[in-house]
């Protein structure tokens, strides 16, 4: 029998770092000299998933480009908590214009860089789910169809958190928000609504689309790096729990994100040129209730009468598992 490469098994394969790996194999976040593109002193809430996801993504992009990036930020939590006058937490060239135009501003930056003969400088646009899937969607779609050389990153925390947790088109069914209260015959967000922007991005047949999670750093860094290997429009959708809006414990941010993936509710996949190219298998599948229970926005599901709605959510997860081939028997 052939021996497996030993490093595969070593302690903490899924941890951020690993002293046993060669330096070039280690994650960006494990580097003592990592960029910290979003540095300390920002005003994100305790346990903010978006702050974490943004640093993960931008640091990885910096490594992939040799620190040659410009970031364009939509209005939202990320923008507000990172750049209140007189202090900014960003260490990269960064601009904030409006809520709904990050993709277009990024297109302009990319065009300018081309005109200056500086197309080594890569452009990232970023925003929350509201700025991406709702108000910024027109500009996003325009940037996609023109195939502008921009990586757009959506940090999806599934509602308008900056304004006090209102529903967005990325809010999942049953979730309680300030505009979908847990009241009445159908408490929380209505089933059968919302849109899947990653798949809409795929439909634009742009070079690269991927979903990622703050709970899977290696996968996230791989996808940012991969995205930087393409020219043209690229889209990365990162799931970032919001302790405040979701009613989860700040310490549970990564746990919650992990359970979203492991339950099948948040599938991790990649698509190239309009075709789904790969998915990241679930390591240990869990029922959706493991995920839902940690969040107060879903508390009403566990009151008497919530069973059917939980079953509905489980069915959504089950469908994802089939659709994205998330549970595989090891070869």
């Amino acid at each position: 029998m052939a021996m497996q490469t030993v490093k595969f098994y070593q302690t903490g394969t899924f941890t951020v770092g690993n002293r046993l790996l060669a330096p070039h194999e280690r994650s960006v976040q494990a580097e003592a000299q990592r960029a910290n593109a979003l540095t300390s002193g920002h005003r994100a809430c305790q346990g903010c998933g978006e702050a974490l996801g943004a640093r993960y993504a931008i640091d990885a992009a910096m490594r992939a480009t040799g620190d040659r990036i410009v970031a364009v930020n939509a209005t939202g939590c990320l923008e507000v908590f990172s750049t209140p006058y007189p202090e900014t937490s960003w260490q990269v060239p960064w601009i904030h214009s409006l809520f709904g135009n990050a993709a277009a501003v990024a297109s302009g930056v990319a065009a300018a860089m081309r005109m200056k003969g500086r197309d080594d400088v890569r452009v990232i646009a970023q925003g929350g789910d509201g700025g991406t899937t709702d108000i910024g969607f027109g500009c996003l779609s325009g940037m996609f169809e023109r195939n502008d050389d921009v990586l757009y990153i959506c940090y999806d925390n599934e509602a308008y958190m900056n304004t006090g947790v209102q529903r967005s088109s990325a809010t999942p069914p049953a979730a309680r928000t300030a505009t979908t209260p847990a009241m009445g015959a159908e408490p929380g967000n209505v089933f059968g609504t919302g849109k899947n922007v990653p798949l809409i991005a795929v439909a634009h047949q742009i070079p690269y689309v991927a979903t990622a999670s703050v709970a899977n750093l290696r996968d996230l860094e791989y996808k940012v790096t991969r995205a930087m290997g393409f020219r043209g429009a690229r889209y990365l959708h990162i799931h970032v729990p919001c302790p405040l809006g979701w009613g989860s414990a700040p310490a549970d941010t990564i746990r919650v994100a992990r359970l979203a993936v492991e339950s099948g509710l948040y599938p991790l996949f990649e698509a190239i040129n309009g075709e789904i190219a790969s998915s990241t298998p679930i390591r240990r599948r869990v029922p959706v209730t493991d995920y839902l229970r940690l969040q107060k926005r879903f508390a009403h599901l566990f009151a008497p009468g919530g069973e059917a709605r939980v079953a509905h959510i489980q069915a959504i997860a089950d469908r994802n598992v089939v659709r994205f081939d998330l549970v595989r028997e090891p070869a």
Binding site: M3, V6, Y9, Q10, T11, G12, T15, V16, G17, N18, R19, L20, R26, S27, Q29, A30, N36, L38, T39, S40, H42, A44, G47, C48, G49, A51, L52, R55, L217, T253, I254
Partner: peptide, 30 residues
């Protein structure tokens, strides 16, 4: 090879083995 494999299965319970997780997962670079 086997010994190394077996040794690396240790979870290092209760004692830091420098996996960088705390360093990586802190949203505040703290």
């Amino acid at each position: 090879g086997n010994a190394l494999f077996e040794a690396r299965r240790c979870l290092s319970c209760g004692n830091c083995f420098e996996c960088d997780n705390c360093y990586g997962v802190c949203p505040d670079n703290a």
